[in-house]
């Protein structure tokens, strides 16, 4: 039995494919969102699949906000990293379902956002009512001074993913990564 397996020299065992995918994931670990450069595409949960066949790799990603112009830059960066790493053909495909949600942002990503001065998206109970027409909106703590007493200035900010808030305690304006 063992000998039969060894004779299938050109076919990689399953753990080999997984190892290759993990290597590609490591190669892509410093590809960042050009508009929020502290976040990697791993933090954002954008990579849905990696398939490696020899020198040929397909990376499947999912778009964030429908009109986000950063997606094109991210695709170019992925291609660039993998071509430099020796892959001869790199395909970047996008898949829409399941739709990306801010709930996929990693804990590490949320911490990095806060350190960068952007309040991370509300989760769970804090996000309640995010689709409601009126009412209070999510509770957003100031990423600069930590105070809970903040107010929404506009639900639309400097990029598609951000809303503009003001802290009533330290009086600074700040960005909030809004949930979808």
């Amino acid at each position: 039995m063992g000998q039969t397996v060894h004779n299938l020299g050109s076919i990689e065992p399953p753990n080999g494919a997984a190892a290759e995918a993990a290597r590609v994931r490591r190669l892509l670990q410093d590809v960042t969102d050009p508009e929020i450069p502290v976040l990697t595409i791993g933090d954002l949960g954008l990579i849905r699949d990696i398939a490696v066949q020899g020198d040929f790799v397909t990376v499947t990603i999912t778009p964030t906000y429908s009109g986000c112009p950063a997606m094109l830059t991210i695709e170019i960066d992925i291609r660039d990293r993998l071509l430099r790493a020796g892959f001869t053909e790199v395909r970047v495909e996008t898949v829409l379902a399941p739709a990306w949600t801010t709930d996929w942002l990693s804990e590490d990503g949320r911490r990095k956002l806060r350190d960068y001065g952007i309040a991370p998206p509300a989760k769970g109970a804090d996000a309640a009512g995010k689709a409601a027409l009126f009412g209070e909106g999510p509770k957003v703590a100031c990423p600069l001074c930590g105070a809970a007493d903040t107010e929404r200035v506009s639900e639309f900010g400097s990029t598609a993913c951000k809303a503009l808030y003001r802290c009533r305690s330290c009086a600074e304006m700040f960005d909030y990564f809004k949930c979808i």
């Binding site: 429908s66 009109g67 506009s154 900010g157």
Partner: peptide, 15 residues
């Protein structure tokens, strides 16, 4: 703020 809001909505719709 409205200049930013209206163009953000435009961006969503064009996307």
């Amino acid at each position: 703020e409205e200049d930013i809001a209206l163009t953000n909505v435009a961006l969503d719709l064009i996307g």
